[in-house]
């Protein structure tokens, strides 16, 4: 009930902001290419749905490819860091240090090496989403109570049983936390890549709109980029509710 109220309160806030925006645009008589009204943006979204959708498909593909590559490489690496002291001492500090490098500055260099296609965008999405996945997975694996390990050892558990029965389930909230941060960052990586050099994708569409002073289309692209992010985030949320018991419920 409280949750329902919370959500409807948030919806109300958004609607109020849109309404004020709409009224302000009408009352001030500001021109569309300076600031379009929400209604104008909505109409444009419908009119240009096929154009927007085709570019959204490109961007979503880049985001998802980068993210999945991060997960596929990041999780085994996190396991290696957790289980091998050498990996932990050699690689983990380097990774944490590299976390502080803004990956976006690599975008022009990636274009130089990988050209104008989807490859540099996927690599950028991968680079930017890789670190949160590795680090939160390692933290999740380390978070397990030592007492729990002793408990299941006293039951004669093997290392594999310790991993699958307790360590992995206990790490899942952290892993999904990392995934959610990573997917939002992957969207940024892909769009930045499209800003640098591209001939399709929502970032490219925004630059096109800019060069034609088509502010409304630009805003429409922003709405679609946000929707891509929200959609992917929601899929992760749903997946988490299927495989992981949230810690919030345990407090």
């Amino acid at each position: 009930m409280a949750r329902l109220f919370e959500n409807s309160a948030a919806t109300l806030l958004i609607l109020t902001v849109l309404l004020v925006w709409q009224i302000a645009v009408i009352v001030s008589g500001i021109s569309e290419f300076v600031l379009p009204s929400p209604l104008q943006i909505a109409i444009r979204l419908v009119e240009e749905r096929w154009l927007l959708l085709s570019h959204a498909g490109v961007t979503a593909f880049e985001v998802l490819s980068g993210f999945l590559t991060s997960a596929v490489i990041g999780i085994p690496l996190a396991l290696a860091i957790f289980y091998s002291p050498i990996f932990e001492r050699a690689i983990y500090p380097v990774l944490v240090g590299m976390q502080t490098i803004p990956k976006i500055v690599l975008a022009p260099i990636l274009v130089l090496y990988l050209g104008y296609g989807w490859a540099p965008k996927i690599v950028l999405a991968f680079l930017i989403s890789f670190f949160p996945i590795v680090i939160s997975t390692v933290v999740g694996l380390q978070s397990l109570d030592k007492g729990l390990v002793n408990l299941v050892r006293s039951m004669g558990a093997t290392e594999a049983q310790i991993f699958f029965k307790i360590r992995l389930p206990a790490a899942l909230p952290n892993i999904f936390g990392g995934f959610k941060v990573a997917i939002s960052l992957a969207v940024i990586g892909a769009v930045i890549g499209e800003y640098i050099a591209a001939d399709k994708g929502l970032g490219y569409l925004q630059l096109q709109a800019n060069s034609q002073f088509d502010t409304t289309l630009n805003f429409a692209a922003v709405v679609v980029i946000s929707s891509v992010g929200i959609g992917l985030y929601s899929i992760l949320n749903w997946l988490e509710s299927k495989v992981s018991f949230r810690r919030e419920r345990a407090t």
Binding site: D145, G147, L148, N150, L151, V152, M155, G156, A157, Q161, K165, I166, P169, A170, S244, F245, R247, A250
Partner: peptide, 23 residues
């Protein structure tokens, strides 16, 4: 042990079944 060390993602039933699963 002093601390109950229950797995928060398992029900009471699931927690008590744990040693049987492991063994």
């Amino acid at each position: 042990f002093q601390s109950d060390l229950l797995l928060y993602w398992r029900t009471v039933l699931g927690n008590v079944l744990l040693p049987l699963e492991i063994k």
